[in-house]
């Protein structure tokens, strides 16, 4: 095998992206756990730990630039680096949305009170969490079959999001919400929106993995 150092550096790059993915996933899981338990202390930790994700982002970007500048990568190597460089932005944004959710939890300081059942919301949370986990798995394994499921899964998430927003707006129209619950509902809608955006970034990752593996930019969306 030629270019042993280069191959090792590429391997390190992929491992670092996976590490960043796992840190982001941990943040998402803890953020949603804090949401479910109304645990402001855990939410504070999620906010603080975002630094870890941001540091990974800067480190990996630097690794990618070094490889591009010094190694003249081609073919799949080039696609791995291009994918990694773009994917870390998606992961960093997922981390930021998770921080936004955590900040809502801290600012509320109590369980969310909404005039509608939370079953759809809980389903949304579960779907988003599994999409983030799977997006990292697709990159780690180069699993394009899994990546191709993201489009329909995201459609489901978009539908849930629209239904939840519609239900909430309905409570305003029908005057079901009290004055004090308006702030809760506003926070709740923000959180729902952040979750929907997190799923969009997971879809981006799936698309990028398809490009990395196949070289075609037939993006799903």
């Amino acid at each position: 095998m030629a270019r042993v150092r280069y191959v090792r550096k590429l391997k390190e790059l992929r491992q670092n992206v996976i590490k960043m993915g796992n840190a982001t996933l941990k943040s998402v899981e803890e953020g949603l756990e804090a949401l479910e338990a109304s645990d402001a202390a855990l939410a504070e930790r999620v906010i603080k730990n975002d630094d870890v994700i941001d540091k990974c982002d800067r480190k990996i970007e630097s690794q990618c630039m070094m490889l591009l500048a010094l190694e003249q990568p081609m073919a799949k190597d080039l696609r791995v680096i291009a994918t990694s460089l773009k994917m870390i932005t998606d992961l960093e944004r997922i981390g930021d949305f998770t921080v936004d959710i955590a900040e809502e939890i801290v600012s509320m300081g109590k369980p969310i009170r909404t005039p509608v059942p939370l079953s759809k919301f809980n389903e949304l949370v579960s779907e988003v969490k599994s999409m983030v986990a799977d997006s990292i798995e697709t990159y780690a394994q180069g699993n394009i079959e899994m990546a191709r499921t993201f489009e329909s899964r995201d459609d489901k998430i978009d539908s849930l999001y629209k239904e939840i927003v519609s239900d909430m707006v309905g409570t305003f129209v029908e005057g079901q919400c009290s004055t004090e619950s308006v702030a809760d509902i506003a926070s709740f809608l923000y959180i729902t929106r952040y979750l929907e955006r997190i799923a969009d970034h997971a879809v981006n990752i799936g698309n990028r993995v398809c490009y990395m593996e196949e070289g075609e930019r037939n993006y799903l969306k």
């Binding site: 095998m1 270019r3 081609m74 073919a75 080039l78 696609r79 196949e214 070289g215």
Partner: peptide, 19 residues
């Protein structure tokens, strides 16, 4: 050819892993 070569031998050559 440089972004998505179809043949493994091309891939190995352009990525410098030939041999």
């Amino acid at each position: 050819l440089f972004e998505r070569p179809r043949d493994k031998r091309t891939e190995d050559y352009v990525t410098g892993k030939f041999g």
